[in-house]
Nucleic acid binder design. Sequence first.
DNA 1: TAAATAAACTAAATCGTTTTACTATATAAT
DNA 2: ATTATATAGTAAAACGATTTAGTTTATTTA
Lengths: 340, 340
Amino acid sequence: MKKKRLALKDIASKLNVSITTVSFVLNGKGKEKKISDEVIKKIQDYTESINFRPNLVAQSLRTGKTKIIVFMVEDISNYFFAKLARIIEDLAYDKDYKVLFCSNENDDKRSKELINLFYERQVDGFIIIPSSGIEEDIKSLINNRVPVVLFDRYFKSLETNYVIINNKVASQNATQHLIDNGFKNIAFITTDVRQIQMLDRLKGYEEATNKANLVSHVLQIPFKDVDSERGKDMISYIINHNNIDAIFFSTNYLTQSGLEVLKETNPALINELGIVTFDDNDLFRIHTPTITAVAQPLKEIAQEIMKIMFDLLSRDDLNLSVKKIVLTANLIQRDSSISK
Amino acid sequence: MKKKRLALKDIASKLNVSITTVSFVLNGKGKEKKISDEVIKKIQDYTESINFRPNLVAQSLRTGKTKIIVFMVEDISNYFFAKLARIIEDLAYDKDYKVLFCSNENDDKRSKELINLFYERQVDGFIIIPSSGIEEDIKSLINNRVPVVLFDRYFKSLETNYVIINNKVASQNATQHLIDNGFKNIAFITTDVRQIQMLDRLKGYEEATNKANLVSHVLQIPFKDVDSERGKDMISYIINHNNIDAIFFSTNYLTQSGLEVLKETNPALINELGIVTFDDNDLFRIHTPTITAVAQPLKEIAQEIMKIMFDLLSRDDLNLSVKKIVLTANLIQRDSSISK
DNA sequence: TAAATAAACTAAATCGTTTTACTATATAAT
DNA sequence: ATTATATAGTAAAACGATTTAGTTTATTTA
């Protein structure tokens, strides 16, 4: 009853050839290894007829390659990451690699666990959005010759491959855009995580407001409160003080909370305020008013990441080629930021 | 320079014990196998000090278990699937399983490829939203004693474990809700895919309209046109004919297209029409007007799927326990469907 | 005191591939 | 008639774990 999976051994004994011969033929090395055409045909016909599938675990053990790449982000269900994941998945499949997605919740402990876990599994490469305290773990991967590409953020003190966008410039432009549209009391709503991409966005905002001699209003919501009532209260508070006439959200989940707060507490305000957000989302095209967004070039990011990854996978001398790619984000102007 | 990964062999020779002993200790069987406390301690201390990680590929080859579950959906970047994926991921990690996510694009060829691929990789189980033509492949997995759980839809002629919602009833209720709110010309916008969940939703709509003696207006958009101009044109057409006063979208990506079309062609209409959609989305709480949705119980679905999966993984006699779970969806009433 | 039992380990087979280093026969070159 | 070369394969080691069936020494038991 219990159908056992067939192995090369079984094919070999069935066809009266050696395991080696079967292996050669299945790997397309029949000709090269001087196996006769008739034997090649015999093996091909039979394996096809029974739909033989070699055991890739055994193959991996022998070759040391698993053809699996890990893609680790904060939360795979977040729009930005999910879209990126989808593109990465396709690029990888084209080159016969599979992608293991996982969410680290921006938590060091979980990140470390995941890295160890996949390292044990001998995955061929890591694409990671690092949480702030895992510099050592990344370094250790690199020391062990494992291909690593970071994105969205990086560690200043670590020579690694990474793909990011120019957050400061993008943030500056977005703020300037609000200023150009006549807004004078622009709030910047962000989280308290002290990661480079967030700090750069803050910097961009501050430089733009300073240059225009505007007061800056920064709200840093503790990361753990982002999705809670507490976070909403904080947003609600800042909106209703200081004569805020515009808001710049530093990341998409904050925007979502923010719009909800507005809707609940003061719906009319949505059409009065200037609104810009980091990270685009289908939602913002459909929202009323449509929301102006700093759109990260998803496709380009994915392509750059995979270009580096495939390059790393194809060589032994990993360190020779540390690539740092900085892409430009696009400001997509919509109704929410035009002069009122 | 090239740091080689250590193996049990290396630990054993370093500590002058056998590989067997090291293996026993690392697997927590030291006591049971009568290894002395001092040897146990020696091995534990050393492996911890060098942060030794056993090769899980070798382990998998030997044990036949990979501790990997595949989660295959239409498109991992779709809101519904992404959210579900996130919950599944957590449930799996709690039991020490990893999840491989992949997108089959609702395409048979791709589905088959993916199934073969992961079967070769000896994954321990499959959670699948099946495209319509892979009944044989699913059957073959089951014959090979691989745990399989389908969800969202299933094959009538195949005895499999599955988790679905009661689409017909949910659809009926949603339609009835529109009727109760005084809408009389309700359009049902769906795709042409002839899969059971879509057919059931259509059936629910038709039964409700029939019962109320209303004319039914069904638009079936070819699956390939869903995201194209052609699809939008079709939506635009139906909205502007037949005196439609309400729309029921059969799935979330159609709703997104639909709302966009409305916004582009006739923004005022959004507040006139009754609108209900299948599948909730954060977007719908924030949209103006807020959109009434049939919400699938994500958490419950994930839990039921994993309950079945873990049950299957823990036994040998797979067929004894075919479980068919039908859950109830919730109608979340919002502004878009109240009497105008 | 000899036999039985327990304690503390270990050798070697096994999982299913890949790959190196042969072997045996046939043909060509000198 | 030998030697060299090509053809058509194969045996066996290796990857790194788990696990069965021992072995050796020490301690009880009869």
